[in-house]
């Protein structure tokens, strides 16, 4: 198992280098100049422009700039933001918990609802439950996040008044940041009112963000269960006189999970990209919103740093998925 993990880690190195190249070139390929954007409407003199350009190192050849970025990265230095003049790493990780909290809860909702829905649909194939689950999930899957988010805000926040429109927590509360997850921090502080407020703010964006993964997980679980149901070993399990529950939940689901776990892993990447839209709609103070701002200002250091960090996180999550896959599927391990 250790060897399996080490090999998987080694395989990440070329991917990581590729990611740095893409992150570095992507933001520079966009039209627009950070210095001119920084100067604002009044413009900037050519002398001042040259001076700033030299200060920031933009006048050097791209290869040199890239090397500078890469060597800084390997030393854990992602540079400083052009706009805020704070370290990109600090900016990133001060906002990151908000995104993680949102994504985790979204994924949790997606799995808790999507997985059983898929199992039930598969065991009741062709029934109205099956058609219902598949219909709802197809709708959820096809719904653009920004549209669905706005509809949800209109209904649940504006019309029904069940949830707040935006933000992470009511301004009435202030809790010390321990984990960065407000739901946990408020619990740690023992402040129940603050906890409810945080949960209240979290629930709607999490549902909106979790809708697509939920639909994907439900559909994948269903089709994977149906496929496994036809396997010889499921017939063997029935021939053993096992209860239907055991045949479905142990023999069928266990094998069906192998593909479902892969799909759940792939959803993590989608969640982070979906988070950008969801955070923008709900004014959620996370990475997504910050990155949108950084891109509009052509904040090279912030964008390339954030991209590399996000890619790194997704790569590590995929590694975890691979390990989980090895645990579930003995054929991978040996």
């Amino acid at each position: 198992m250790l060897k399996f993990i080490l090999v998987k880690l080694a395989q990440l190195i070329p991917t990581f280098i590729g990611v740095t190249i893409v992150a570095f070139s992507f933001i520079r390929l966009l039209p627009g100049d950070p210095i001119i954007l920084l100067a604002g409407e009044r413009g900037i003199s050519p002398e001042r422009y040259a001076q700033l350009s030299a200060e920031l190192g933009f006048d050097r050849p791209l290869v040199v700039q890239y090397w500078d970025f890469l060597s800084g990265l390997l030393q854990g230095d992602l540079g400083t933001s052009l706009v805020t003049h704070t370290r990109v790493v600090d900016e990133f990780f001060s906002r990151f918990p908000a995104t993680v909290e949102l994504s985790l809860v979204a994924l949790l909702i997606a799995v808790i609802i999507g997985l059983p829905a898929g199992v039930i649909a598969a065991t009741r194939r062709g029934s109205w439950i099956d058609h219902g689950v598949m219909g709802v999930s197809l709708t959820g899957y096809s719904m653009p996040i920004f549209w669905w988010g706005l509809l949800a805000i209109m209904l649940f926040s504006s019309t029904l008044g069940w949830t707040p429109v935006s933000g992470r927590i009511s301004y009435l509360y202030f809790v010390d940041s321990v984990t960065g997850f407000l739901t946990i921090d408020t619990l740690l502080a023992g402040n129940w009112d603050a906890f409810w407020s945080a949960l209240h703010h979290l629930i709607l964006p999490a549902i909106v963000l979790g809708t697509i993964p939920m639909a994907v997980i439900a559909r994948q679980t269903r089709s994977s269960m149906l496929e496994v149901q036809g396997e010889d070993y499921v017939r063997t399990a029935r021939a053993k006189g096992l209860s239907n529950f055991r045949v479905v939940m142990v023999h069928t689901l266990r094998n069906a999970l192998i593909t479902v776990v892969t799909v759940i892993g792939l959803q993590v990447g989608l969640l982070l990209s979906g988070a950008i839209l969801t955070e923008t709609i709900f004014s959620w103070p996370g990475i997504g919103k910050w990155m949108v701002d950084a891109i509009t200002r052509r904040d090279y250091a912030a964008v390339q740093g954030a991209l590399v960090l996000i890619a790194l996180i997704i790569m590590l999550i995929n590694l975890l998925v691979d390990i989980a896959y090895g645990v579930i599927n003995p054929r991978i391990r040996h």
Partner: peptide, 13 residues
């Protein structure tokens, strides 16, 4: 009962 395809009749997990 035992079956025709022993390789696929046992649960791989």
């Amino acid at each position: 009962m035992i079956f025709q395809e022993p390789m696929s009749s046992l649960n791989p997990c």
